[in-house]
Design a protein around this nucleic acid. Structure first.
Lengths: 202, 202, 202, 202
DNA sequence: AATGAATGAGGATTCATTCAT
DNA sequence: AATGAATGAATCCTCATTCAT
């Protein structure tokens, strides 16, 4: 039990740094958050941060990886095997909703990443991740066209891109919505209706 | 004559600073471009920059305003009075194409703006501009539904948003496309086809 | 039994720190070796080092004293009572050869000491040791002049200094000779020949 | 005239930094002198130093080059063409005396260089300089043996090394002699006498 | 005997900005 | 209209050292 406590305490500081950094980065971007600022927000000295993270860059990259990893894990929960294409699209939107609710800090952080002006060294480490979602969306549409009743004369690639950009835009809006006025769930419902109308031919 | 020369020279330096700053900001973001870097790229001393621009912030804001203003002027050229809704949508895409071709630096800069992590002070000055385009798009769709043959049971607001985010996303991709491999014109053609198919009911 | 083991283990760690510190200091100088570096090279935590040594300074000074003390012990082996002055000179060179072979780390360390830029506090503790060798050399030459057949009109003090600086220079060269290309023994033989030629008048 | 003043003022600060840095480095070694310390000793802010010198390393390397270059220039003055080997040796010693008198700061700095523990990057830039003097000394002895009446059965290489190390040792002593108690000139006179006695066979 | 976690002080360097000229 | 020189404040990061366990 003592061991657990110990290990818990250990992770506590590290986690505090982690979460505060995520929040600050998502609020102000990489360059405008200083190590000092992070440390002050946590209430530790600078060397403590450097005890847990090699440097600012590493901290940031680990943050990205963590956000991705949590996202992927959550995504799995929503991606059952035997779903119809429409259900899959629905679940993708539900997944983002859930992500937003469960990790509000990370979604802001995550939705900002692609938009931040980052040091080149970081971009290189992050870029490989980019837009697996686009592939997923395309495949769903393809599947839908093949045996899901989706309209055949629809530009598959382009429509997937449209869906992707819209989702991202909504997440972007939500992440900037400090007063919780933006009803993401409602917007996603309407979005799904729109997609259905477009995709399903009569 | 001397005066003119003088004044021309004056504008020349100012303009050099302006354009180099635009290029650098669009390439690397606000925070990662230093005054020194801008001055070196122009070949003048730092006080020269401060002679023309109050400070870094002012330089940036003026840049935004200039890009907006040029954009608006160009937009007028494409927005004739007696156009059908579809033609209007087509022209909006043509306008962006033209903007990209005519002001390649500014489009990159402009497309970065919303994405940059900016000091709060700047954010406040810029935000009022945001997304007049969304209104325009909504009105076109509305007009189309009223007397343009557009599908009536389409979520107007949402579809406009979809269009907006897709355009932005394409401009974003184009602005990051260093090797000129991204065929914006072709994509816009396909996009217009897609929109037509969706909007025009049979 | 357990106690002995215990105590042995204790000395082992202490000794590991000691030797690694000696090596690192001799390779890079006092300031450029960090406590972290020493600890990492040994594979212990920093507090362990501080358990055995009060601080960096103390560690260094103890290192100097140890090197000196080992040197002195070895020196005694080479300084028999009934040696002729020439034999004494020869044995001094042999002593340094032996020191180099037996304590390669310490000789590097030792030869660096006088050259390192050290904190004042350390300098004060070390300086008293300086150059007992010079006195020894002078006395040998004096003895040789008095009843060893050494040339009488030789500047005793100065020649001793010449001998000292040459020995030191050779040790310095040897200590920097990573590839083991420098033949110290051979050089010392030649050096002894030279000295004989100079000291012994025909 | 104004221009000269201007340029003088300009060089004044730079030179102040230069000389203070030389003094501090020679007193305490590279690592233990901080940029802050140099700036405080001159009375300027840190950015001023960085205005004149790229970084600490560059400052140091330029210092070395300057000391070397001044040394070489002075050396030329002492190395006439038609000198006898003995006169050449004498002049080498006189040259060092002159150097010490004319550039007391630099001699300390210069004599310390080889002894300092420097960052590897600096050592690489400096090492090419090493010990042209040894070659010079060897050639003089060779010349003396061939037609200067120097003893033929003297180990040429070794004796040159002996001379070199002794000179260096004296300069080292002088550079550490804060109270000006060490009579370098007198020592050099005695040294020359010793060398003559050894080199010139009867 | 040894450790994980934390610290305060200080390191070199760069920033946007301004002065006198 | 333009410059060389200077600055205060901030940047990221590392140091030797220590506390509680």
């Amino acid at each position: 039990m003592e061991d657990k406590n110990h290990s818990h305490q250990q992770n506590q500081t590290r986690n505090d740094i982690f979460m505060n950094a995520a929040r600050l980065f998502s609020e102000k971007g990489y360059n405008r958050v200083s190590i000092r600022e992070i440390c002050e927000s946590v209430g530790v000295g600078k060397p403590t941060l450097y005890y847990y993270f090699k440097d600012k860059e590493t901290l940031f990259v680990q943050l990205v990886q963590e956000a991705k990893s949590l996202g992927r894990a959550l995504f799995e929960e929503f991606m059952g095997k035997d779903l119809s294409p429409i259900e899959k699209l629905e679940n993708i939107l539900r997944f983002f909703q859930a992500y937003v609710e469960r990790y509000p800090v990370f979604i802001r952080f995550f939705s900002q990443i692609s938009l931040m002006s980052l040091p080149e060294s970081i971009e290189l480490q992050i870029s490989p991740f980019k837009d697996e979602l686009l592939d997923t969306l395309q495949e769903i549409v393809k599947e839908g066209q093949e045996h899901g009743g989706f309209s055949h004369d629809l530009d598959r690639e382009l429509f997937a891109l449209t869906m992707l950009s819209t989702i991202k835009y909504f997440l972007h809006l939500k992440s900037r919505d400090s007063g919780n006025e933006f009803d993401l769930a409602g917007m996603f419902d309407r979005l799904l209706d729109l997609w259905k109308k477009i995709l399903l031919e009569t």
